[in-house]
Simulated scan of single mutants.
Amino acid sequence: MRDSIKVILFCFLLVIPFLTLACSQIKDYPTDLEQLSEDERLVIRFSHVVGEDTPKGMAARKFAELIKERSNGRIEIQVFSNGTLYKDVEELDALLRGDIQLIAPAISKLTDLVPELSVYDLPYAFNSLEEVHEFTESEAGNRLKDLLKMHNLIALSLWDSGFKQISNDIRPIEHYQDLKGIRMRIMQSDILAQQYYIVDAFPRKIDFNTVFQSLKKGDIEGQENTLTNITSKNFYSLQKYLTISNHGYLGYFLLFNLDFWESLSDEDRELITETLHEVQEWQWQLAEDLNDRRLQEIEECQCIQIYYLSEEEKKEWEEHFTPVYHYYTQHYGDYYIQNLPKYKYVK
Results as ranks from 00 to 15, higher is better:
residue 4 S to A: 12
residue 4 S to G: 02
residue 6 K to S: 10
residue 7 V to S: 13
residue 7 V to T: 10
residue 8 I to W: 10
residue 11 C to Y: 12
residue 14 L to N: 10
residue 21 L to T: 10
residue 21 L to A: 14
residue 32 D to P: 02
residue 38 E to N: 04
residue 43 V to R: 09
residue 43 V to Y: 02
residue 47 S to M: 04
residue 49 V to W: 08
residue 52 E to C: 03
residue 53 D to L: 08
residue 58 M to E: 12
residue 59 A to H: 08
residue 59 A to L: 13
residue 62 K to Q: 15
residue 63 F to M: 12
residue 63 F to I: 12
residue 66 L to C: 01
residue 66 L to D: 07
residue 67 I to N: 07
residue 70 R to E: 07
residue 72 N to G: 01
residue 73 G to Q: 09
residue 74 R to D: 03
residue 75 I to C: 04
residue 77 I to L: 10
residue 78 Q to D: 02
residue 81 S to C: 07
residue 85 L to A: 01
residue 89 V to S: 14
residue 96 L to A: 05
residue 96 L to C: 01
residue 97 R to A: 08
residue 102 L to N: 04
residue 102 L to Y: 06
residue 106 A to L: 11
residue 107 I to Q: 04
residue 110 L to A: 05
residue 110 L to T: 04
residue 113 L to E: 05
residue 116 E to F: 02
residue 118 S to R: 00
residue 120 Y to I: 09
residue 125 A to D: 01
residue 127 N to L: 06
residue 130 E to I: 13
residue 132 V to D: 06
residue 134 E to A: 14
residue 136 T to N: 15
residue 139 E to S: 12
residue 139 E to I: 15
residue 140 A to F: 06
residue 143 R to W: 05
residue 147 L to P: 01
residue 150 M to D: 15
residue 150 M to K: 10
residue 151 H to P: 00
residue 152 N to L: 04
residue 152 N to V: 08
residue 163 F to P: 02
residue 168 N to G: 08
residue 169 D to K: 08
residue 175 H to A: 06
residue 177 Q to G: 12
residue 179 L to D: 07
residue 182 I to E: 00
residue 182 I to G: 02
residue 183 R to E: 13
residue 188 Q to I: 10
residue 188 Q to H: 10
residue 189 S to G: 07
residue 191 I to T: 12
residue 194 Q to V: 08
residue 200 D to Q: 13
residue 204 R to P: 00
residue 204 R to M: 15
residue 205 K to V: 15
residue 212 F to S: 13
residue 219 D to V: 11
residue 221 E to T: 09
residue 221 E to P: 08
residue 223 Q to T: 15
residue 223 Q to K: 03
residue 224 E to L: 11
residue 225 N to P: 03
residue 227 L to R: 04
residue 229 N to H: 06
residue 230 I to S: 06
residue 232 S to I: 07
residue 234 N to D: 10
residue 240 K to C: 02
residue 242 L to H: 00
residue 248 G to L: 06
residue 252 Y to N: 14
residue 254 L to T: 13
residue 255 L to F: 11
residue 260 F to S: 04
residue 262 E to V: 01
residue 266 D to A: 10
residue 271 L to N: 03
residue 277 H to K: 15
residue 280 Q to C: 03
residue 282 W to T: 12
residue 282 W to R: 07
residue 282 W to A: 09
residue 283 Q to N: 04
residue 285 Q to Y: 11
residue 286 L to I: 09
residue 288 E to Y: 11
residue 290 L to F: 04
residue 300 E to V: 03
residue 300 E to M: 03
residue 304 I to V: 14
residue 306 I to D: 00
residue 308 Y to V: 09
residue 310 S to W: 04
residue 314 K to N: 04
residue 316 E to I: 11
residue 316 E to W: 01
residue 318 E to G: 05
residue 321 F to M: 14
residue 322 T to H: 06
residue 324 V to H: 01
residue 324 V to S: 04
residue 325 Y to M: 05
residue 332 Y to L: 05
residue 335 Y to E: 14
residue 339 N to I: 13
residue 340 L to K: 05
residue 342 K to L: 14
residue 346 V to S: 11
residue 347 K to C: 06
